[in-house]
Every structure is written in structure tokens, then in C-alpha cells.
Amino acid sequence: MPITNRGREILDRLPPTQPRTSSSIGCEIERHEELCVGCGTCAKKCPSGASQRGDTFDVQQLLGTPADSRRGALGAALRRIARRDPVGLVEVPPRVTIYRTILYDAERCLGCGACARNCPAGAIEALAPHVEVTS
């Protein structure tokens, strides 16, 4: 449901074309996992629980990210200090607030863009929605 109430009211008042570039009527969320540092700010800001902090941390996903990203740099550092290859998911204790895999559920997303506005790593982008206009 990426269109906001106000967006719907505005679209009702415009001739049936397809405005797509304006995120002011709502937005679709695109996550760039390679930039995500797992801090959980998006989960904290998300009003609907579409973004949630997972209980685990996928080390292999981290190691697989390109080295020129923030997360990749972290992975490279980890590779240097690791004694053996990590396997599977790592349980993260509840009090540790960062380095978790963020679970994102597009079905629950309201398209408000709060996560994109607040993401410290710039890993979330709010895109204009694809509007199906039936005249």
C-alpha cells in the first residue's frame, strides 16, 4: 500500500495520467543490503513493523558483499581476523544493538518513507510508486 491518503486525494483531482516521479504521494521502499550496517534505526522508526531487527546475523551474507561498500569493508575486516570460515547464522544477544540482519516485509509497508529519511547508512531509498490509473 505505497500510496498515502493525501496522495490518493491528489490523484483523484488530477486528470488520469500517471505521475510517477513524485514521492510526495507515497513511496516504494528499495533496500540496498550492501550498504546496510544493521543498526536497526529503520526498525525503530517503522510505524507498521515492516522493518524488523532479526535475532540473527548472517555472516556469510556480510562476507559476500562487495568490498567497496561499508558492509563490505566490515566483511573484509572480519575475514582478516576470522580463524575459520563462519557457517550459517549467528545468534545476536538481545542487548547488542547493531550488526543484525534486518527483516523487511513489503506487504506490511505503508510507504511513509520514515526508514529512508532516518537511515544513517543511506541504505534505504524511497522511490515514487507505480500508480495504476483506471479512468
Binding site: 488530477l14 495520467t17 500517471q18 516521479t21 513524485s22 504521494i25
Partner: peptide, 12 residues
């Protein structure tokens, strides 16, 4: 700015 953008896209 938002209104201008929307109106321009709607061809108004």
C-alpha cells in the same frame, strides 16, 4: 514544488 511537479506530469 510538489504541486508543480504533479501538475506538470498531469500536463496542466
Amino acid at each position: 514544488r510538489v504541486a508543480e511537479e504533479l501538475l506538470a506530469e498531469a500536463g496542466l
